[in-house]
Design a protein around this nucleic acid. Structure first.
Lengths: 145, 145
DNA sequence: TCCGTATAAATGCAACTGCATGTATTTAGT
DNA sequence: ACTAAATACATGCAGTTGCATTTATACGGA
């Protein structure tokens, strides 16, 4: 299947992917919000920053999170206002910033994860058995390759 | 797998689903936008309206498209401003509206579909062979059940 | 019939996103 | 070294979304 037109099956898969986005991603987001937590985008940024111990440049976050430049800029702003990250000028590039996670940011990650984990289980894990989950993960990997 | 915590595999599947949302859905949206077409949400509304020949109530669109009430209200407004749909009061419910697709709306659907189809193929169909596409469609169906 | 409650849809306001542009700094060509 | 082009990031503005509230109509019980 690599012709110019998608098969009927591909279209089915497409519509279900769209719906899964609304139901599963939307569901997890809603669970987090209902518990008073910030959106997943905050979590994603903080997680990347915790992984990269040395801090990250905004443009690195941009490519890792597949976000537009201006969105990264403002997302970082919001996180900085809430003292979850800290910005400092880059030593070797006067145009650049280095963004680091703060202790409050680490704490938020720690507090969010148990609920996030449960939300993933509720909206995804509980719908598929282990072999199916594995199959789905593999297929999505191919899709993203 | 129905315990309280998701398996590592479930988490893998989750992160890939998130990424697929950005890459695949984002990719298709971008293709349409690049061709000067309105967002997919417009297409979705028009498609539902064309299927339901008699027109639909906003609340019916709401449940079919899994959108929030206020978003449907404004989405319809925008479509109506562009003469793609028409609103008229419901005969048997004074609170209600009936939304119908116009000829211009049908025309937009016809003009968008070839490109939409190609975008689906590009971002999904071409990444998976026929059996894998079928498997993905089945797994997503389970996920949505 | 009248009244309280539920439902359908719209809307004011704040937050967020996209797009284009602006500002500062680095890099490359001469 | 000097200037043009590229890069990193920020920002003004318009469009979109979420949330709470409002308006209008329908319904159900006394």
């Amino acid at each position: 299947m690599s012709g110019a037109d998608p098969s009927e099956t591909a279209i089915k898969a497409w519509t279900r992917l769209v719906r899964a986005q609304v139901m599963v991603l939307g569901g997890v987001e809603a669970d987090l919000k209902a518990a008073g937590f910030p959106p997943l985008s905050w979590y994603d940024v903080l997680l990347e920053l915790r992984r990269a111990e040395r801090g990250l440049r905004p443009m690195e976050l941009e490519s890792r999170l597949l976000l537009a430049q201006h969105n990264v800029s403002r997302l970082i702003d919001r996180l900085a206002v809430n003292r979850l990250v800290r910005k400092r000028p880059s030593a070797n590039d006067g145009r650049g910033q280095i963004v680091e996670i703060t202790e409050a940011g680490r704490d938020l990650l720690r507090r969010m994860w148990p609920l996030y984990r449960r939300a993933i289980q509720r909206h995804m894990g509980s719908k598929l058995d282990a072999p199916d989950t594995d199959r789905l993960a593999r297929l999505l990997k191919k899709l993203l390759a």
